[in-house]
């Protein structure tokens, strides 16, 4: 039995500790917001936070998580209240939407470290998450928007 701290809750699962966290989230815990795209740390669709650090859940054995807290897209914020989610809506970022949980988690980790990132800091942090639909320009705009302390706007 493995015990995990996910999105503020403690969850227990009975799986082989070698099983990647991705599949434990998706197939055992019903947290399907974290996506499978490549399985080998090449696309970032599966990005989650371990103690706030962005990691690819597809190559993180669940047995290696230990006592670290796991945050998934479901735990980013209730009611779309995270500044990045609001910015994503304002910029109408998603197309098919499949890569967006990974994009948002990567962006959230970036802003936690660098509240006002430059374009090249965005490039560096976000180039690990692929988007086949080509929403990159809007992702960049949305990160800049979220990085500006919100004033009373529209």
């Amino acid at each position: 039995m493995i015990s995990l701290r996910i999105n503020g809750e403690t969850r227990r699962v009975e799986v082989d500790p070698e099983t990647p966290l991705l599949w434990v989230l998706r197939d055992h815990l019903g947290l399907t917001g974290t996506k499978y795209g490549c399985g080998v740390a090449l696309c970032g669709s599966c990005l989650v936070h371990l103690d706030g650090e962005p990691v690819n859940a597809c190559v993180t054995p669940v047995g290696a998580v230990g006592g670290r807290t796991v945050t998934t897209i479901e735990g980013l914020a209730k009611d779309l209240s995270h500044p990045l989610q609001r910015a994503w809506i304002a910029e109408q970022v998603p197309q098919c939407g499949y890569c967006q949980p990974g994009q948002l988690m990567a962006a959230a980790a970036l802003l936690a470290k660098i509240p006002q990132p430059t374009d090249s800091e965005i490039d560096q942090a976000m180039s690990r998450v692929l988007c086949r639909c080509g929403t990159y320009s809007r992702i960049r705009r949305a990160i800049h928007r979220a990085a500006v302390p919100e004033t009373k706007e529209v």
Partner: peptide, 26 residues
Amino acid sequence: PRLDVPEKVSGQARFGLDVRLPGMLF
């Protein structure tokens, strides 16, 4: 504004791989 955007930024949008049925196998 697109109607599908909120679901797609909350992680709730259900794609094919997100279908879960009682008793299902993979």
